[in-house]
């Protein structure tokens, strides 16, 4: 099977006070198993909306989303999500946060703990199990969020600008770590970002979205072997292509506003 996730002509319209607002228009996309796909687009183009639809947190107005041959109808732990905002439960320790999804599943204490500890170790936070989120830095919080999303062993990992609110150096480290985790867990990753650098460094393929109403205008295969060098010539060529596509979209957005 070569389709992990398939979006068929997905649209999303929101009802606002000024009338209907079309957020997404006819999105069709296929994500392959074990692929790292980045979605990039000008701000307000509906990247986050798209990810929320795949997560099942919102319903598409039309079209269908199919994961492993089954239509997505609501949220489920087979799609792990890491949010842009800090989403750890502040009343739970790191361990308890990672255990959350397993608790809901009804897993036994001991098995739950072992699995949670495995993922905490995977994100490099061994020794912080009993810390509360307020004791952690922004980067550490997002690592816990990744561990929490992975703990339920989802079929796909959805990431909504997860490193948007950490500083640039930490972001570079987190990106490297994410690639390592991806390599080890062989997950399919759908990663939304507004950063061209991030997309080119991480992705197998980058899908570029247009300004609102968002639709896919181009998919680029980033066929640079890993580990990639952030400043290499090939990386820069891709960056230039993407930047050009995006600036074109931004100028369109300005005209339509």
């Amino acid at each position: 099977m070569n389709h992990k996730l398939e979006l068929r002509n997905v649209t999303k319209t929101f009802n606002t006070e000024e009338g209907e607002m079309e957020a997404l228009e006819g999105i069709s996309l296929v994500v392959k198993p074990n692929e790292f796909l980045c979605i990039i687009g000008p701000s307000g183009c509906g990247k986050t909306t798209l990810l929320r639809l795949v997560a099942g947190l919102d319903q598409p107005s039309s079209g269908e989303i199919i994961l492993d041959g089954k239509e997505v109808i609501g949220p489920s732990p087979d799609r792990g999500m890491v949010f842009q905002e800090f989403s750890l439960f502040p009343w739970r320790t790191v361990l308890k946060n990672v255990e959350f999804g397993l608790e809901i599943k009804g897993m036994k204490d001991k098995a739950r703990r072992e699995l949670a500890e495995k993922y905490i170790e995977l994100v490099g936070l061994k020794g912080f199990e009993n810390c509360y989120p307020y004791e952690l830095s922004g980067g550490m919080k997002q690592r816990v969020a990744i561990a929490r999303a992975l703990a339920t062993e989802p079929a796909i990992l959805l990431m909504d600008e997860p490193f948007g609110s950490v500083d640039a150096q930490t972001r570079n480290i987190l990106q490297e770590e994410l690639l390592e985790i991806w390599k080890r867990t062989k997950k399919t990753v759908l990663f939304v970002t507004h950063s061209v650098d991030e997309a080119v460094y991480l992705a197998d393929r980058v899908a570029v979205m247009s300004a609102r109403p968002g639709c896919l205008i181009k998919c680029l295969d980033i066929d640079i072997p890993r580990p990639r060098k952030r400043t290499s010539v090939e990386v820069n060529e891709f960056r230039e292509q993407l930047l050009m596509l995006l600036s074109l979209e931004r100028s369109k957005a300005c005209i339509s506003v």
Binding site: L57, P77, I104
Partner: peptide
């Protein structure tokens, strides 16, 4: 955000969301 996070982790609407 906490409600969304819990839903994605498997909390269905209702009692389990309230409890957790």
């Amino acid at each position: 955000i906490y409600i969304d996070a819990a839903k994605v982790l498997g909390c269905k609407k209702g009692m389990s969301l309230i409890k957790s």
